[in-house]
């Protein structure tokens, strides 16, 4: 199936953001917390996106924020996949009481709304980058577990897995050579969705003042810092908020396409 134009748009958006995250701090005109002008200066040649509530250059902060926000979200997603997939495959392939205990525990964890659980934990733990990554990863890994277990369950019942069992293959071969390669397409799409979740979640925490702490630049925090500008008719908080929204829309466009592709591929098989 040929990608639709919307998918190309999605890929282009992701490419721009990745570039910004990687080289943003290097090409940023000013420092992350450098005060370079007045409060909320309008767009100008010196400050293409104006200045923020403390007179810092918005563009520079956006670029610095890209690497921080995307970096933390990506790290959390990677960690959540490591946890979720390991446990999910374990539950599906081993089955029995291992599956029951893991599934019950994860179900209970999922019974608590993610944001509420994060708030409770952040009430006593300092919102450092490591803590944020850990909290988001653990909460997110429950969803990864569910999906990884479900897709692995679909594959585990296939006869070719039984063939491997009957041959006497070890658990490692069965998981990595028989099951894993057949479960990747839906999990790739899920990676995009989970990244969006981690990214939005981190932004929301920062917006609530509980995420990445000032003066470090972070898009959710930048919305919070400049929220008052709105009442003066200045759309400044909309700039970092739009930066967040555009990335998630881009990722979702690609994910939608990937999901459709893997479902038609399965139907075709």
């Amino acid at each position: 199936m040929r990608p639709r134009p919307s998918v190309l748009v999605g890929f282009a958006i992701i490419a721009v953001y990745v570039a910004a995250a990687v080289i943003g701090p290097l090409v940023s005109p000013y420092g992350e917390a450098e005060v370079v002008g007045d409060v909320w200066e309008p767009f100008s040649a010196a400050h293409p996106l104006g200045t923020d509530n403390l007179g810092r250059d918005m563009l520079s902060r956006l670029l610095w924020g890209a690497s921080r926000t995307i970096g933390v979200a990506l790290a959390a997603t990677l960690l959540s996949f490591t946890i979720g997939m390991t446990l999910g495959y374990l539950a599906a392939v081993v089955g029995g009481w291992v599956d029951m205990v893991l599934s019950r525990a994860i179900d209970t964890l999922m019974a608590i709304p993610t944001l509420i659980f994060a708030l409770v934990v952040l009430a006593v733990l300092p919102p450092s980058v490591v803590i944020l990554i850990l909290v988001i990863a653990v909460l997110d890994s429950t969803r990864v577990f569910r999906l990884a277990r479900a897709v692995a369950m679909d594959v585990v019942v296939m006869d070719f897995v039984e063939v491997a069992r009957l041959r006497g293959e070890r658990l490692g071969w069965i998981v990595f050579r028989e099951v894993l390669p057949n479960t990747l397409p839906p999990l790739i799409a899920e990676f995009g969705l989970r990244f969006c979740f981690a990214f939005l979640f981190l932004s929301s925490l920062s917006f609530l003042g509980l995420g990445i702490q000032p003066p470090a630049a972070d898009w959710g925090g930048m919305v919070r810092d400049n929220a008052n500008a709105i009442s003066f008719g200045l759309p400044i908080p909309l700039i970092p908020a739009a930066a967040i929204a555009v990335l998630t829309i881009g990722v979702n466009l690609v994910v939608d396409w990937q999901l459709e592709r893997s479902s038609t591929a399965r139907r075709g098989a």
């Binding site: 006869d159 070719f160 039984e162 006497g168 050579r177 390669p181 057949n182 098989a269």
Partner: peptide
């Protein structure tokens, strides 16, 4: 034992699901 497993082999009804599509 491995050799006991080797001596009895199984062929299935649905060849579609008896072969790993990624191999």
């Amino acid at each position: 034992a491995k050799d006991q497993l080797r001596r009895i082999q199984l062929v299935y009804q649905m060849p579609d699901v008896a072969l790993n599509p990624r191999q």
